[in-house]
Simulated assay, not measured.
Amino acid sequence: MTDTVWAPDGSNLVVHADNAEYLPTLPDGAFTLIYVDPPFNTGRPQLRQETRMVANAGGSGDRVGFKGRSYDTIKGALHRYDDAFSDYWSFLEPRLVEAWRLLADDGTLYLHLDYREVHYAKVMLDAIFGRECFLNEIIWAYDYGARARNRWPTKHDNILVYVKNPAKYHFDNAEVDREPYMAPGLVTPAKRELGKLPTDVWWHTIVSPTGKEKTGYPTQKPEGLVRRVVAASSRPGDWCLDFFAGSGTLGAVAAKLGRKFVCVDQNQPAIDIMLKRLGAHATLASHQPN
């Protein structure tokens, strides 16, 4: 691990550091896109146990799969982080101020939260960026999780989108993936084949617990979700930043789309997962405060 300094022509970085200490070392206007998925302040620890299935030829495994095949469940590492802050806003606000400073004049911030704090975040970002710099609130809707009986089950997250300069920001919706029409019989065959552009409501499944994309990190976000963000709000060769990087989904997507990236996290399990996922595309760095 090296105390690598970011450079415009340098390599992608996975940085093991406290973001509050690392972000001030980066230069003004360095990033076209900042996507951050901070802890949601749920008040409880987030846990994820890695598991994998191994065939049991003797038929005595603890799980039965396709066509009655027997499997043993092998448990791996348990990943955890605490998602409870006594003063959430004193934690988040200085980091969002840094995000404003680090955005290029044509840059965009995507702040991924949920219903607990998103309305307070909107007021805070209006103050930091200016209300005229608010671009969208994206609703990520999914069909997994909550099964409440005494209220409407919560099945979405919120992503606030702010631009540094409302007259100059980059946005290219032609680069994003298209969706099938909900009423395909009402459009022409050509339109049906092409699909429609996404709106501000994105229907996308979570990361499958058994899929190849799963890293075992709690609250991992799917690549398909972040791909829209990166494709629409950056260009090949642009720098992208995630300073609550977690499993490194922003870095994985940026690498596939030809963008440069910096992924920052202070938790060792996150760094271990990102090195496994991004090691061929990034240099591991650390930051030691003076």
Rank of each mutant, 00 (worst) to 15 (best):
M1E: 15
A7S: 14
L13W: 00
A20V: 06
Y22W: 09
L23Q: 06
P24T: 15
P24D: 11
T25W: 06
L26A: 01
P27S: 07
D28F: 11
D28A: 13
G29R: 06
T32I: 04
V36W: 00
V36I: 15
P38E: 00
F40P: 01
N41W: 10
T42A: 14
P45I: 08
Q46A: 10
L47W: 08
T51C: 09
M53S: 14
N56M: 05
A57K: 12
G61E: 07
V64L: 08
V64C: 13
K67I: 07
D72N: 14
D72C: 05
K75S: 13
D87N: 10
W89Q: 03
S90Y: 05
L92K: 04
P94L: 05
R95N: 06
V97R: 11
W100G: 07
G107H: 00
Y110E: 04
L111V: 04
H112E: 04
Y115E: 09
E117T: 15
V118S: 10
Y120G: 12
Y120I: 15
A121G: 07
V123S: 15
D126I: 06
I128F: 06
G130T: 11
E132N: 13
E132C: 13
N136P: 14
E137D: 12
I138L: 13
W140Y: 10
D143M: 14
D143G: 15
D143L: 14
A146H: 10
A148K: 12
R149N: 15
R149Q: 14
N150Y: 12
R151I: 04
R151F: 12
W152N: 07
L160T: 04
V161L: 14
V161K: 00
V161Y: 00
K164V: 08
N165F: 09
P166S: 09
P166E: 07
P166W: 04
K168D: 14
Y169G: 02
H170P: 14
N173V: 10
A174V: 06
E175G: 10
D177H: 10
Y181I: 12
G185M: 11
P189G: 10
P189Y: 08
P198D: 04
I206T: 13
T210H: 10
T210V: 11
G211S: 12
G211A: 09
E213K: 01
E213R: 01
T219Q: 06
K221G: 02
P222R: 14
P222M: 15
P222E: 15
V229P: 01
S234E: 02
G237S: 08
D238H: 03
W239G: 02
C240V: 06
D242F: 01
A245C: 03
S247N: 07
S247H: 05
T249W: 00
L250V: 13
G251S: 10
A252G: 04
R259N: 03
R259E: 02
V262Y: 00
V264Q: 02
I271R: 01
M274D: 00
L275T: 05
G279A: 08
G279Y: 08
A280P: 07
H281V: 02
A282S: 12
T283S: 11
H287G: 03
